[in-house]
Simulated assay, not measured.
Amino acid sequence: MPWNWQIKDWPDFRYDASTIASFEESFLLSSGEILGAVHHVSPSERDQLRIDLLSDEAMKTSAIEGEMLDRLSVQSSLRRHLGLEPDNYPAKPREQGVAEMMVDVYSTYAKPLTHETLFRWHEMLLSHDQRLETIGAYRRHEDAMQIVSGRHDRPTVHFEAPPSDHVPDEMERYVEWFNGTAPDAANALPALTRAGLSHLYFESIHPFEDGNGRLGRALAEKSLAQNIGQPSLIALAFTIERDRKAYYDQLEHHQKTLDVTPWLEWFAETVLTAQRVTLERVGFFIAKAHFYDLHRAHFNDRQAKAIERMFREGPDGFKGGLSAENYLSITNTSRATATRDLQELVDMGALSRTGERRYTRYWLNLPGTEI
């Protein structure tokens, strides 16, 4: 079976627009909900919300590729690149690179796409990687660009991209298509359709030696932001990472055909889920702010440290709740002190408690987290 770029009508993807129409409508409605939710956050807290959401995306878009990052280093780098008051946490090269790229995607979303934009993102993302021949430019190697898995002596080839000498022409056509389907362009496409096609199209060219997945998801974010007229801040990578096998399966299947309606349906459902996740996280952020307004002044240092650690887990919190053993590990205190601290947190209404004895678990008391 040929790859999609070897099919005669490439890159004229075929799809049923009527199948996607209801998703497009839901996307626009949810975008308005997210805007309204963010307005509940005070101006002074919006910067921290941006950092929380952008750092989650930076962490997860890297995790999809099997790369684990230091969250505090990512957030420290984001603060610097957003021009906010820096903290003292050291910025590591890998984390600094992805943070710089995320901020660039966020702040330049409205600008047309250029080759130089892509080269800049690639250099930001991979300037630390000494293994690559070409950074900040399209791949040039003569070897086939393949996505493989399995044993080295018996690999399974999931996809083979166009040869390197085809890439400049393919990318010239891609950039022209991306800008020509923007909201005010002659061939404007609806938001989800354009973003879904932009991602599949880019991944099928696979123009760089490495980083194509992260750049392709950044392009989908840029496309969505252009269609709604502001940075989207939706948890796209966060949502994809939850089921990355389905993501890779969908890409692999649709890199062998130009009939992409099922891909667009899957992508649309993923974006709508990402919007719901974002609403949940904005609600969590608002509840967190109210929680600290109520309780911050009453915490001792140990309690403050444990509460901060619980919030760092996000809306899902500690799986199964915080145990006394967790508290001992976080605070490095005695069991008697831990028991007293936890009871105080329950009495003041900061935590709720379930279970008895060794099954006792503690949960952040965050009423009203729904938007």
Rank of each mutant, 00 (worst) to 15 (best):
W5P: 15
I7L: 12
P11R: 01
R14G: 08
Y15S: 08
T19D: 11
F23I: 04
F23Q: 03
S26P: 11
S30L: 05
S31L: 01
E33V: 06
I34Q: 01
V41E: 00
E45W: 00
D47S: 01
D52K: 00
S55V: 01
M59E: 00
M68H: 08
S73M: 07
R80F: 07
H81G: 13
L82Y: 09
E85G: 15
N88L: 09
Y89R: 09
A91M: 08
E95M: 04
A99V: 06
V103T: 03
T108R: 08
A110V: 01
L118H: 05
W121Q: 11
W121T: 15
H122W: 03
H128V: 14
Q130W: 03
I135C: 08
G136W: 02
G136Y: 04
S149W: 01
D153A: 04
E160M: 08
A161L: 04
P163A: 01
P168F: 00
E170R: 06
E170D: 13
M171W: 02
F178C: 06
F178W: 05
N179W: 00
A191I: 11
R194G: 12
L197S: 11
L197E: 04
S198H: 05
H199I: 07
H199S: 11
L200P: 11
Y201S: 11
S204K: 14
P207Y: 03
F208I: 10
G211Y: 06
R214Y: 10
R214G: 14
L215V: 15
L215F: 04
G216Y: 04
R217A: 12
R217V: 12
E221W: 09
L224V: 05
A225D: 13
S232K: 06
I234K: 07
A237P: 02
A237I: 07
T239L: 01
E241M: 05
R242I: 03
R242Q: 13
K245P: 14
E252I: 14
E252K: 15
K256G: 14
T261P: 15
L264S: 12
E265P: 14
E265R: 09
F267H: 06
E269N: 09
E269H: 05
A274Q: 10
Q275H: 08
E280A: 13
A289I: 06
L294I: 10
R296P: 15
A297Q: 14
A297W: 03
D301A: 12
K305M: 09
M310P: 15
G314C: 05
G314D: 04
D316M: 04
G320V: 11
G321F: 01
L322H: 09
S323L: 06
Y327F: 10
S329K: 13
N332M: 07
T333R: 06
R335C: 06
L342E: 10
E344N: 10
E344G: 09
E344V: 12
M348K: 13
T354S: 15
G355R: 13
R357E: 10
R361I: 14
R361S: 15
L366E: 12
P367R: 05
G368F: 08
